[in-house]
Design a protein around this nucleic acid. Sequence first.
DNA 1: AACAAGACCTGTAAGC
DNA 2: TGCTTACAGGTCTTGT
Length: 273
Amino acid sequence: MPELPEVETTRSGLESLLHDHPVIKKVRLMRGDIRFKIPKNLPKQLEGQKIVGVRRRAKYLLFDTANGILLNHLGMTGSWRMVEPGDEDKHDHCYIELENGKRLAFRDPRRFGVIDLIQPGGEAKHKLLKNLGVEPLDETAWTSDYLFQRSRKRKVAIKVFIMNQVVVVGIGNIYASEALYRAQVKPQKLASKVTREECERIVKSSREILQHAIKAGGSSIRDYKQASGESGGFQLLHKVYDRENQECPVCLSKIRAKVLGGRSTYWCPICQK
DNA sequence: AACAAGACCTGTAAGC
DNA sequence: TGCTTACAGGTCTTGT
């Protein structure tokens, strides 16, 4: 799924599609639940409301209206698109019909995504938002001091640690491997043993990797599509992810892979210490 | 409190 | 051509 760059690419695509702040005519829920139950009053509460903007917090999208926020997570396979008549799909779980005649669809085959309603003013207290860590693109929050202090005494691999959304948000399985490769830190190194200098490199590298991926329109292995329907281009830039036994672009060693914290992890045995 | 493993789903690719 | 198995961008829940 979508990690921060894919969610941000989706957000900016939606922002363009909704630049004229259309009014929601009808919300059609094709099922009562995706990952969690969808509030039954969500359609009634958002119909007639103007979509005044689309924000991102961590890997969540927030559609703003004056009468509440539609909260969405793409899970592993979620995507938004404008859908023409006849283009409906069996995995479309929610349609948002607009007064301007357009129709947004949320498609999510695996149904790991989330759609929820946040009451006006309830954003900070929302269960799924209240425990999130710092935004990695925020240079005043995602700092080497922050990473160093938070990682002391933590007995998990640094890769597992930076994927913990309570610590820092938006870094998922692809960009965790890519960021640590760029930082030249072995993913299995214990978080508590990572030095100040390494923290500096991890913070800088992770931010750069995410920024580059956003510029490229996100990665688009498998299911991911931009809101415009375009595929992303960043997978062409993956240096280690999904490249087991292929050459390290720098030293030509064979990229290695193992499972860490239940997720496939890739690194260069020479470049990363 | 911190950590590991299990659970939730469907689609696709690989192996036999 | 099937059938079976493994695996996939996430994260909440459960158990130690």
